[in-house]
């Protein structure tokens, strides 16, 4: 009983977790964004499942039909889908800029590049101070 009534939600949870795993574990920024998409889309699937009514029709009023799916989750998810694509496009634009600035879209390489630069800056500063002392 429990399984037949809830299996739907459990699969959706599995989907969400695959998405979340990709966001956290993947080092490639584009893959992270794809993961974020999966995560969000799965939450949408959950919402739409909440609105499901057994035997309910699509929420467009027709003569002679009495049972409809709940329209409210649909409305919320329409908004959420738009928010999702807005986030995705901004994130991808950021990735393009990061590619231009760092020459890589791998998290590890970007961080390595940062550390390298910080060490360089430190060295330059020390050299400058040394020169000042000589003067």
């Amino acid at each position: 009983m429990l399984i037949t009534s809830l299996y739907n939600y459990w699969i959706v949870i599995a989907l969400m977790m695959i998405g979340l795993y990709m966001v956290v574990a993947q080092g490639n920024l584009i893959k992270k964004i794809i993961g974020l998409n999966i995560f969000q889309t799965s939450v949408f699937i959950f919402y739409i499942s909440v609105g499901k009514v057994d035997g309910g029709a699509a929420p467009i009023l027709i003569e002679g039909e009495n049972v409809y799916s709940n329209p409210l989750p649909h409305v919320l998810i329409l908004t959420a889908i738009v928010v999702g694509i807005a986030t995705t496009s901004l994130a991808l634009a950021l990735v393009i800029r990061i590619m231009r600035a760092y020459g890589s879209v791998e998290e590890r390489e970007i961080q390595a590049e940062e550390e390298k630069r910080e060490i360089q800056a430190e060295q330059e500063k020390r050299e400058m101070q040394a020169e000042e002392v000589q003067c």
Binding site: I48, S69, L78, S89
Partner: peptide, 21 residues
């Protein structure tokens, strides 16, 4: 699930705009 509007939008976004970008 009877969510026709959402299906329409998700098809346009999830299978259209987002992979394109």
């Amino acid at each position: 699930m009877g969510a026709v509007d959402v299906a329409f939008t998700e098809a346009a976004v999830g299978a259209g705009i987002s992979p394109l970008l």
